[in-house]
C-alpha cells in the first residue's frame, strides 16, 4: 500500500516535470512543424537564469514566495529574449525548407548556445536550492514529501489548464487551432500566419525556460543539462503525439508512472522505461496517442 501510494506520488511529480519540459516543444511542433532542438538551450538558459535570480534575491532579503516568482519571471524573460532573437533573426530565413533541415538549424543553434552558456556563466556549476529548502516538507505516514514538488505538480496542472483554456476559448487560441489544422487555408482566410508563428515560438521558448527554472532548485545547474532534456522531451512528445497538448500531458503521466513503478519494483529496467514505452507506443500508434493519421494529399 505504501509502495502503491509512493509510486503514484513519485509518478505525478516526475510527470509534472516532464510535462513542463515537453509542453513548449509540442506547442512549437504543433503550430510550426518544427522539432525544436533549441528547446534544450531554452531549458538550460532558464535554469542558469533562475540560478542567477536566486543569487540576486538571497542577497537582498526578500520573502521566499516573491523570490520564487522573481526566479520564474527572470528565467521566462530570458526565454522570451532568446525566442525573439532566434525566430526573427534566424528561423524566419528557413521557413518553408524541409522539416529535417529546420531540425538541423535548431541543432546547430543548440551547439552554438552550449558554448555561449560557458562564455556567459563560466564552467563552474551553480546552486539554486534555496526555494526548495525554504518550502519545507510534510510527512504523510512513512513518506516525506517535499512541498516544492507539490508546487511543481500544481504548476504543471495550471500550465495544462491555461493551455487548454486559451486554445479552446480565446481568439488567439482559435486562430492557432486553425493554423495547426491547415496553414495554407488559414493564411487564405486572412490570418497573419507570420505573427502566429512568432507568438507561438515566443510562448514555446518561455515555457522551455520555465521548465529549466522550476528544476533549477532541485538540480545542480551545470554544463550539458540541456542535452539530457531534449531526448526526454522528444520521447514524451512522441508518445503523446507530436503537437498535441493533451498528448504531452498523457505521455508525461504514462512515462512518469511507469518510471516510478520501475524504480520501486524492478530498478534494473529503469534505464529502458522511457525508450521502451516510446517504441511500444509508436509501434501500436505510429503518430502517437493523440494524433490521428493525417489524410494523405494527392
Amino acid at each position: 500500500m505504501l509502495t502503491a501510494s509512493a509510486i503514484l506520488t513519485d509518478g505525478l511529480v516526475y510527470a509534472a516535470y516532464l510535462f513542463i519540459v515537453a509542453v513548449g516543444l509540442t506547442l512549437i511542433f504543433g503550430v510550426m512543424k518544427i522539432l525544436n532542438v533549441t528547446h534544450g538551450s531554452f531549458y538550460a538558459f532558464g535554469a542558469y537564469g533562475a540560478a542567477t535570480a536566486v543569487g540576486i534575491y538571497t542577497n537582498g532579503d526578500w520573502p521566499a514566495a516573491l523570490g520564487f516568482l522573481f526566479m520564474l519571471g527572470f528565467a521566462m524573460a530570458i526565454g522570451l529574449v532568446m525566442g525573439i532573437i532566434l525566430e526573427r533573426g534566424l528561423l524566419r530565413l528557413v521557413y518553408g525548407k524541409d522539416e529535417v533541415v529546420i531540425v538541423l538549424v535548431t541543432y546547430a543553434t543548440f551547439l552554438i548556445l552550449e558554448d555561449v552558456i560557458g562564455l556567459v556563466w563560466g564552467t563552474a556549476s551553480y546552486a539554486a536550492y534555496q526555494p526548495m529548502i525554504a518550502a519545507g516538507n510534510i510527512e504523510i505516514g512513512d513518506l516525506v514529501l517535499s512541498n516544492y514538488d507539490i508546487v511543481l505538480v500544481v504548476l504543471a496542472a495550471v500550465v495544462a489548464a491555461l493551455a487548454y483554456w486559451s486554445l479552446k476559448f480565446t481568439r488567439y487560441g482559435r486562430l492557432l487551432t486553425t493554423v495547426i489544422y491547415d496553414r495554407e487555408t488559414a493564411a487564405a482566410f486572412g490570418i497573419n500566419v507570420t505573427l502566429v508563428y512568432t507568438v507561438t515560438f515566443l510562448i514555446g521558448a518561455a515555457l522551455g525556460a520555465l521548465g529549466g527554472a522550476v528544476m533549477a532548485p532541485k538540480i545542480s545547474v551545470t554544463l550539458g543539462i540541456g542535452v539530457e532534456v531534449i531526448v526526454l522531451a522528444f520521447a514524451v512528445v512522441a508518445i503523446g503525439g507530436m503537437g498535441s497538448i493533451e498528448g504531452a500531458l498523457v505521455g508525461a503521466l504514462i512515462v512518469g508512472i511507469c518510471r516510478a513503478a520501475a524504480v520501486h519494483l524492478v530498478p534494473q529496467i529503469e534505464l529502458f522505461v522511457i525508450y521502451g514505452v516510446m517504441a511500444l507506443v509508436l509501434v501500436a500508434r505510429p503518430y502517437g496517442l493523440f494524433v490521428r493519421a493525417q489524410p494523405r494529399k494527392i
Binding site: 522539432l35 520521447a235 512522441a238 525508450y275 509508436l282 505510429p286
Partner: peptide, 21 residues
C-alpha cells in the same frame, strides 16, 4: 517502412537508444 517524416526519425532514435541501454 511504414513510417514517414519525423516519426521515422523518432522510431529509429528509440530503437538505437534501446540498444544503448
Amino acid at each position: 517502412a511504414r513510417y514517414r517524416e519525423i516519426f521515422f526519425a523518432m522510431l529509429s532514435l528509440a530503437l538505437s537508444m534501446i540498444l544503448y541501454g
